Structure formats: C-alpha cells, structure tokens
Simulated scan of single mutants.
Amino acid sequence: MTEVSSTLEFLQNIDLCKTQRPYVFTPSQNDEKLLDTTEENLNTIRLAFEEVNLRDIRGYQDEFCLQKAGFEVVENKPLHDDLDTVTKEETRYAYAKDTEKFWMNHLNADYVFCYNVKAPSRVEETRTSGL
C-alpha cells in the first residue's frame, strides 16, 4: 500500500467531551446582548494537529467495515444516467431518491432522508497514480 505522511486536525480528547457532546453555538445578534458570549460558553470544541500516515486503500477496500474501521467503501451507481435530458432540479431530486434507496437497502434502514444533494458534473475526472 502506498503511504504518505500528513498532518490532520482532530478533536482533542478533553474531559468535557466525556460528559457532553462537543458543540459550537452561534447566537443571533439579538441574543448576543442577552448571553455570556465568552469563547468557553459558545464553543467546547478544542482541536489539535496530529501527524498521521495515510494509505491508499484501493484494492484493499474489503478489509474495512463500518463496525471496525468507522467507515466502509461502497459503490453506488446512480440509476439516472440521462442527465442531459433533465433540468438541474430534476437531477438533484433523482440523485436524492437514488441515494436514499441505496442507503435504505445497504443499511437495512427504516428511513433515509437526503437533505443536501451535490449532483456530479459531466466533466471527466482524470486520476493520477498514487495518492
């Protein structure tokens, strides 16, 4: 596997995160007059940089599962390939429905809602070897 070293930013493992979820609160301008807006009260997220090794997992996708790695590699080929014949809004709706159906089946979910759709463009992507 090809490996490169990089620096990524992660949530710090602070004691506060053991008792509550990290959050960022952005009050409206009207609320700022009524609240204590010191940084500690608005944001419990503390970040730290960490050196990590990144590996190219192409060819090893089957070694990763959601339960062990926290992610999995899945392939979803959209059912709607007729992008030239539909409007942008129709395309987004079609992709949302395809995505919802895919995840419902893949995860055996009762309900899936696709709330933000970024339809792929028709531009051919060129890949380079390595990462």
Rank of each mutant, 00 (worst) to 15 (best):
C17R: 15
C17P: 05
C17T: 14
K18H: 11
K18E: 09
K18S: 10
K18G: 11
K18V: 14
K18A: 10
K18T: 12
R21V: 13
R21W: 12
R21L: 09
P22M: 02
Y23V: 02
Y23F: 15
Y23R: 06
Y23I: 01
Y23T: 04
Y23W: 06
V24R: 14
V24N: 09
V24Q: 08
V24A: 10
F25L: 15
F25V: 09
F25N: 12
F25W: 13
F25Q: 07
F25T: 05
T26P: 04
T26F: 11
T26N: 12
P27V: 00
P27T: 05
P27H: 02
S28H: 05
S28D: 10
S28Y: 08
Q29I: 12
Q29E: 11
Q29G: 07
Q29D: 15
Q29H: 10
N30C: 11
N30D: 15
N30T: 15
N30A: 14
D31Q: 11
D31N: 13
D31R: 14
D31T: 09
D31W: 10
D31G: 13
D31P: 03
E32L: 08
E32D: 06
E32K: 15
K33I: 14
K33W: 04
L34T: 13
L34R: 12
L34W: 12
L35W: 14
L35C: 06
L35E: 08
L35Y: 04
L35V: 09
D36T: 08
D36W: 03
D36V: 06
T37I: 13
T37W: 04
T37E: 02
T38H: 08
E39I: 08
E39T: 09
E39P: 04
E40Y: 10
E40I: 13
E40P: 00
N41C: 04
L42H: 00
L42W: 01
N43I: 01
T44D: 00
T44E: 00
T44V: 01
I45D: 01
I45N: 02
R46G: 02
R46E: 11
R46Y: 04
R46I: 02
L47W: 05
L47R: 06
L47P: 00
A48M: 07
A48F: 07
A48C: 10
F49T: 14
F49Y: 05
F49M: 05
F49C: 15
E50Q: 13
E50I: 08
E50K: 04
E51I: 02
E51M: 05
E51C: 03
E51G: 05
